[in-house]
Design a protein around this nucleic acid. Structure first.
Lengths: 196, 196
DNA sequence: AAATCTGTGCAATTTAAACTTTACAAAGTA
DNA sequence: TACTTTGTAAAGTTTAAATTGCACAGATTT
């Protein structure tokens, strides 16, 4: 009905995009990263080409230092990368454009780290238990033996669980997950649903 | 070699258990919840029976109010529940003892929430776009049309992604994940690997 | 060589999250 | 009815995380 001017329309479109970016930022917190990570992801994604720290600072109103910190974090999380741009001295950053891939990167970064930390703790505790066992005397109380046995059991369950997580990470990282939970595009203009 | 007294042994065992609890607390942060959630989970888990707010406060050295807050959160996350104890006025809380099930509960709580929030945003934006389309005039710039088209595309990808997440949640929640990433217990004293 | 630009280390500040204290309602007990 | 006990709401405090400002190194240009 009401016909809007070009500028008004652009304004409206921009505000829709901003809503999307805001939501990406929110959702990203589910991965345990600061919402600013999500915000930058959204901004660069919407921008459709690599951006510099200055342009990001501009867009967010935040300091360049913070942009630097966050982009570094994103690179370590495997959801962004520097892109060389001829003729420019500035670093240009781009982001993974495939949402599902981003999910997988964050998921696996997080859990691989957890598994790693865990494995070393387990090793340490196993040793400690082995040591304690040598300290048992025949007049050690029944209680102690039970607790010791239980602790062993805990560690076994613990180990089982983290092996599972480890396999889960591999299941995602290898892309096998897509064989069982496929990505379904509603309007299949393209046939190539599974490439990469 | 060195034979330790009962008390010393119990002490040592306790300190191993505490290390496990600490690690659970740490790891739980990967789910985006406070480490105190993980700490309580660990404490109740190790305790092997339901605990009251007072005993939790005692164990952690934190206030009872905080215990109440955290247990409520854990219940809403589906990883703890009140357990009726005859003859006691206090609420007793117990936790899910199956690690993998805990993982799934947290995973699905988090992502189901994200999907929900997203779905409503998507609906809102679709409407807005439909509205904006009616505002286009023949002298609207090419730029506007391109941006509009792009926004549509974003929403399509967006939709595809969240449908995927939604399916992923179902994949976990239904337990189908275990068919493809099984839980492997190292020493299979029991045969019943898949029940529930 | 001086001047500029770019990214980042580091300390300081702000903001948000975790946690505590106080107070009080609901339910139980004497 | 008055007195406890228990859980939690609300507001305040502390702690940790996010963010900034400054400073400076390395690389580039003049």
């Amino acid at each position: 009905m009401a016909s809007l001017s070009n500028d008004q329309l652009l304004q409206e479109i921009k505000s829709c995009e901003d809503l999307l970016t805001d939501r990406i930022a929110d959702n990203m917190e589910t991965f345990g990263v600061s919402s600013t990570v999500g915000r930058l992801l959204g901004i660069i994604y919407m921008n459709r080409e690599a951006m510099t720290l200055d342009s990001l600072a501009d867009e967010t109103g935040m300091s360049k230092t913070r942009m630097s910190q966050v982009m570094r974090q994103m690179i370590s999380l495997n959801i962004a990368e520097k892109e060389y741009v001829k003729g420019s001295r500035k670093d240009h950053y781009n982001v993974e454009r495939d949402y599902a891939q981003t999910f997988i990167s964050l998921f696996t970064s997080n859990w691989a780290e957890v598994v790693k930390r865990n494995t070393s703790l387990e090793r340490r505790l196993r040793e400690q238990i082995r040591h304690l066992e040598t300290c048992l005397t025949e007049d050690s109380s029944e209680d102690v033996k039970v607790r010791m046995e239980r602790l062993q059991q805990e560690l076994d369950e613990w180990n089982t669980y983290y092996n599972w997580i480890n396999n889960l990470v591999a299941f995602f990282e290898s892309g096998e997950i897509f064989n069982h939970v496929p990505i379904i595009t509603p309007n299949k203009k393209e046939e190539e649903q599974n490439e990469e």
